[in-house]
Lab assay of single mutants.
Amino acid sequence: LTVHVGNVTYHFDNPEQAEEWAKRMAKKYQGQIHVKDGQFRIE
Rank of each mutant, 00 (worst) to 15 (best):
L1I: 13
L1V: 14
T2P: 01
T2D: 06
T2G: 04
T2H: 07
V3E: 00
V3R: 00
H4V: 14
H4P: 00
H4Q: 13
H4R: 10
V5M: 08
G6T: 03
G6K: 05
G6L: 09
G6Y: 10
G6S: 05
N7K: 11
N7H: 11
N7C: 13
N7Q: 09
V8C: 14
V8S: 08
V8M: 11
V8Q: 11
V8L: 10
T9A: 11
T9Y: 07
T9E: 09
H11A: 07
H11V: 10
F12Q: 00
F12D: 00
D13V: 10
D13T: 13
D13W: 08
D13M: 09
D13E: 11
N14W: 06
P15N: 07
E16L: 11
E16C: 14
E16Q: 11
E16I: 11
Q17H: 11
Q17R: 11
Q17T: 11
A18V: 02
A18H: 01
E19F: 15
E19N: 06
E20S: 09
E20P: 00
E20F: 06
E20G: 05
E20V: 06
E20W: 12
E20Q: 11
E20A: 12
W21P: 00
W21V: 02
W21H: 04
W21E: 02
A22G: 02
A22D: 00
A22F: 05
K23R: 11
K23M: 09
K23H: 11
K23C: 13
R24S: 09
R24D: 08
R24H: 12
M25V: 07
M25R: 01
M25I: 10
A26E: 05
K27P: 04
K27T: 12
K27E: 15
K27M: 13
K28I: 09
Y29C: 09
Y29V: 08
Q30D: 10
Q30N: 15
Q30L: 06
G31F: 08
G31Q: 06
G31N: 03
G31D: 04
Q32H: 13
Q32M: 08
I33V: 12
I33Y: 06
I33C: 13
H34E: 08
H34V: 15
H34M: 11
V35R: 04
V35Y: 15
V35S: 05
V35I: 14
V35E: 07
K36D: 08
K36R: 07
K36A: 10
K36C: 13
K36Q: 14
D37V: 01
D37H: 02
D37W: 01
D37C: 09
D37L: 02
G38C: 13
G38R: 01
Q39F: 05
Q39H: 13
Q39D: 10
Q39M: 07
F40Q: 03
F40D: 03
F40A: 02
F40Y: 14
R41N: 12
R41L: 14
R41A: 07
R41E: 10
R41P: 05
I42V: 11
I42P: 05
I42Y: 05
E43V: 13
E43Y: 08
